[in-house]
């Protein structure tokens, strides 16, 4: 039997170790064993790779993973809001709170687009409706008292009445029964910095707002809901001179 040893020429050896210093090629190993200068060159290349690796291993900015996840949560929430989807991941809810306070804080804009804020809050709060509390107008008035106003007569079915912050503005959020479904009514004491749009909305919801003396009211209902009728009936009952 004749064992044929295929010897590697210099160029081939160099090509192998330069392109892959960690090679396990037996031809490379044999060539290095037979020639000290080849072994030396190979070691130099291995050392170079260690140095390259150490050099490339740059420090990663602090909290980068956390920042990436937060960025995704914020973005996810915006998309959810845009599409009018009503499900919110917990992370998005938390990010919503952070986002609102952060942007408000950062921009320090005196003007607050209250109508849009109310709509955003509406979607947010829709997630949290729990049950039919069926409050009386008196119970609503009890809460409204802190705004110095009240309803003078029965306003119909009220599922819930909670104080909420919309863009950091304290507001009373009533969820009431409309002709088609639930209607959200936001009552907020008037401030000049609150920008109210007469009508607004998106693909699914319509909104309207009005100012009665020192009180603003924003009403949001599903498309097709008789909001104007609802608004006029409600505004007649609001005792805003009180």
């Amino acid at each position: 039997m004749k064992a044929e040893i295929i010897k590697m020429d210099d160029l081939e050896f160099r090509r192998s170790i330069y392109s892959e210093p960690s090679t396990n090629d037996s031809k490379v190993r044999d060539a290095a064993l037979q020639d000290e200068s080849k072994q030396k060159l190979w070691n130099e290349l291995k050392d170079l790779d260690v140095a390259i690796q150490e050099t490339m291993n740059v420090p990663v900015p602090e909290n980068l993973a956390h920042k990436i996840i937060l960025n995704q949560s914020l973005n996810q929430h915006q998309e959810t809001k845009r599409r009018g989807r009503v499900h919110l991941a917990l992370a998005a809810s938390v990010a919503f709170a952070i986002g609102i306070s952060f942007t408000t804080f950062q921009q320090r804009q005196p003007d607050i687009n209250f109508s849009e804020g109310a709509l955003a809050h509406f979607y947010h709060a829709k997630e949290m409706e729990n049950g039919d509390a069926n409050l009386s107008t008196q119970q609503v008035n009890f809460k409204l008292a802190s705004f110095g106003t009240q309803f003078s007569s029965d306003i119909g079915k009220v599922f819930s009445a909670n104080f909420c912050d919309v863009d950091k503005v304290r507001t009373l959020h009533l969820i009431m029964e409309g002709e088609q479904g639930k209607v959200s009514v936001f009552i907020v004491p008037h401030e000049d910095r609150l920008l109210m749009k007469d009508t607004f909305g998106d693909d699914d919801m319509d909104g309207t707002s009005l100012q009665l003396g020192e009180t603003n009211m924003v009403i949001i209902g599903e498309k097709g809901e008789a909001l104007e009728k609802f608004k006029s009936s409600l505004s007649k009952k609001l005792d805003y001179t009180a």
């Binding site: 499900h87 919110l88 991941a89 917990l90 809810s93 997630e127 949290m128």
Partner: peptide
């Protein structure tokens, strides 16, 4: 935040 908690299970 406290109101959110009630919704946790529904995610």
């Amino acid at each position: 935040f406290s109101r959110n908690k009630t919704k946790l299970s529904a995610v």
